[in-house]
Design a protein around this nucleic acid. Structure first.
Lengths: 122, 122
DNA sequence: CACATATGATTACGCCTGTAGTCGGAGAGT
DNA sequence: ACTCTCCGACTACAGGCGTAATCATATGTG
């Protein structure tokens, strides 16, 4: 179950993670207009996501209502793990170190991180 | 320049990041045997990576020597940024927090992270 | 009831990817 | 010089992805 979600499909999932269930057209209405997708395209995405088992649809009269079957958190976990496996030898710590070094962290970010570390030590 | 490197292509890049320049067959010899790839497949990868501008080749008699044109660190930076943009609103800090919470960190990892935080605060 | 309309289902199509196979020319052996 | 072999160049082909168009069917409308 739950094959990989492609880049474009992710845009559809994001909409449904934010609000569900929705009809196909409701999803279309909530897609970032910058994508400039035809309704047809979004229907195709919904169909593929159904086939992949990451969405469910229930009939609502003559249309369907779509809802996610996988939680966003599960997807985030999977994708993060993929990155860790592919580029950081499967360990999260090197990625954390990498991020801390290469991405400008605001003072707030650092304070949060500090609190986190304190908590982890406990 | 430098289009995206696919999953399979990455295996080839990893070899060349570790040791370069190499001939096509030397690359093939160093690919994880578990991949069970034919030499042809690896030649194809090399060709595509050349076309993508991430490898260079220089003649060495009747064969070529391949070497990376993009550093592994640049690739890692790009892929990390992609993940951050797609799933963490473009900010690294939430990813760090996420990782710290959801991935078992060893005591050593935490100590390292602590040192990092101290350094960041300085 | 016949037709325009709205929806889901099916089909299309070009590019990328994974995974090779084939063709042709440059050396190597006899 | 002729042939065999090795290597790169070009070609192949199925499945996934981005992006839709077309077909079929159910529905509301005059």
């Amino acid at each position: 179950m739950s094959e990989r979600i492609s880049e474009a499909e992710l845009a559809v999932m994001e909409v449904l993670w934010r609000e569900a269930p929705l009809t196909a057209l409701d999803v279309a209405a909530r897609i970032d207009p910058a994508r400039d997708w035809s309704d047809r395209t979004i229907k195709t995405m919904l169909g593929r996501l159904l086939a992949k088992g990451v969405l469910a649809h229930e009939e609502d009269g003559r249309r369907y209502l779509y809802r996610p079957l996988v939680a966003r958190s599960a997807y985030v976990a999977g994708e993060s793990q993929r990155l860790i496996d592919r580029l950081f030898g499967g360990r999260a710590a090197p990625l954390v170190a990498y991020l801390a070094e290469h991405h400008d962290m605001s003072a707030t970010d650092i304070a949060e991180l500090e609190a986190l570390v304190r908590e982890l030590k406990a």
